Computed example of a mutant assay.
Amino acid sequence: MGMIALQVTVPKGSLCNLHLKLKVGLPPDAIYNIVIDPENKRVFKNIKEVISRRVLVDEGPRQLVEVEQAAIWRFLWWSGTISVHVLVDQNREDHTLKFKQLRTGFMEKFEGCWKVEPLFVDEQLCHPFKPKTLDEYNSCTGGKGRVGSILSLEQLVQPAILPPPPLSWYLRGITARTTEMLISDLVAEAASIRGNASAANSSQTSETSENTSNGNTLQAFDVKERWRHRRNAPRRRNNRELSR
């Protein structure tokens, strides 16, 4: 839906500070589901393995999770695997995900925040009124306005010892490239979900028109439910294959 806008700054004493923002063609809740999914290894190719995942606090929409992953990085002809051990504070109410490194080693600091905000695609339908909330947007568009997302990331990477150039340049390039790969995978997953949703809507529209004469109506699933159904489909196929 939008190009990736990635800016890299170099604060004194750190390797880099990444600022990223892009538009994605799915509602915030659907995007957030992809980001916080414990099994998102299937989406993000740079996650080699989830070593451990432990929920420390569960308050419904907000969770505090300790996660350790083996992450793959690639840059030019170099590649490798690093362990990432972070504390994740995820809050569905404002669609934020804050992470901070727990165990220092090569990295003195590795922290940041993901945020997903609603994008009112058909905001012009509300003119001259400018909606500020999803409820206001639904009200002025009669519930027909399309909703996308604005995804942003702030990430600070600070090594215990900052290497001199050109090694610091390579590490900075690896960090930026790894983030770009992560976002590209997320955008591809969003496009796949959106395509499946469009196909499901077309099918439901056809079925609804056929059943109208019988007084039957079909209730459309929301994007979140379709995404869950799609995510669980491979598991159901594997279970059927094992039972044969």
Rank of each mutant, 00 (worst) to 15 (best):
K144W: 06
L242E: 13
I31P: 00
C140G: 02
K23D: 03
D122L: 10
G145P: 06
N216G: 09
S202V: 15
G80T: 06
P165W: 14
E49W: 11
S79P: 04
V50P: 00
S83E: 02
R42E: 14
L102C: 13
C126G: 08
L186M: 12
E68A: 11
L76M: 15
E39P: 11
T133G: 06
R228Y: 05
V121A: 13
V147T: 02
R177H: 13
I47E: 03
H127E: 11
E39C: 08
D29T: 03
L242W: 02
P131M: 01
K41R: 15
I72E: 08
L15I: 04
V223I: 15
F99A: 04
A200E: 03
A190I: 10
E108A: 09
M107Y: 14
F99G: 06
S152I: 03
A191D: 14
V88I: 11
S202G: 12
L134F: 06
A71M: 14
K100I: 06
N46E: 14
A70P: 10
I51D: 08
D94P: 01
G173Q: 03
N214P: 03
G148R: 01
T179K: 12
L64H: 02
E49N: 12
L20W: 05
R240M: 14
L76I: 11
T96Q: 04
T9E: 13
K224F: 05
T141A: 05
G2P: 08
R194C: 07
E39A: 07
S139I: 04
V187C: 15
K12E: 07
Q101Y: 11
P159Y: 00
P11G: 08
L87Y: 08
V157C: 03
D185E: 14
S52T: 07
V43W: 10
R172V: 00
F110C: 05
I174P: 00
W114I: 00
Q101P: 03
S213T: 12
L6S: 05
K45W: 01
Q219E: 13
I183Y: 04
H127Y: 15
A191M: 00
C126H: 08
H229I: 13
Q155F: 01
F110D: 03
G13T: 06
N33H: 04
L125N: 09
V55N: 07
Q204F: 00
P166C: 11
E59N: 11
F106M: 07
P165H: 10
L18K: 00
V121P: 14
Q219Y: 02
A70L: 15
L151Q: 07
L156E: 00
R103W: 12
L87P: 13
S243M: 15
E39V: 07
S52D: 11
V57D: 10
P118K: 02
F110Q: 01
E66G: 04
F99C: 12
L26I: 08
M1A: 12
E207T: 01
S139V: 01
D94V: 00
W227C: 08
T104H: 09
P165F: 11
S243E: 09
R226V: 04
L102F: 13
S213A: 13
P131A: 01
D135V: 13
Q7W: 05
E68L: 09
N232V: 01
E136R: 01
M107T: 02
F221E: 08
I82A: 09
L64N: 01
V84T: 09
I161D: 12
P118C: 05
G105L: 12
S14M: 00
I174C: 13
